[in-house]
Amino acid sequence: MTLAELESGKLAVVKHLKLNHQEKELGKRLLAIGITPDKQIQVIRKASFGGPLHIRLGSTTEIAIRRQEAKMVQVHCLNSL
């Protein structure tokens, strides 16, 4: 599944980035900001009107990312209870 499909509050890990050639720059930025394979990832909340997602990466990095860009991040959902 992609990050865009992940429910708020559920814990997941990053599998890989699915980018085409034009998006190489974005890929680098996402890696630098901490979206790296095996990193723990969580959607904290989603902005209304189709706005960005509030994401926590690992434990100490939080970012806002548009749903468009979140579709490029493949994640694996963990059961969090």
């Binding site: 970012i63 806002a64 990312i65």
Partner: peptide, 9 residues
Amino acid sequence: EPFVLELPP
């Protein structure tokens, strides 16, 4: 342009 922004504490 993609939108990815840090939300610092």
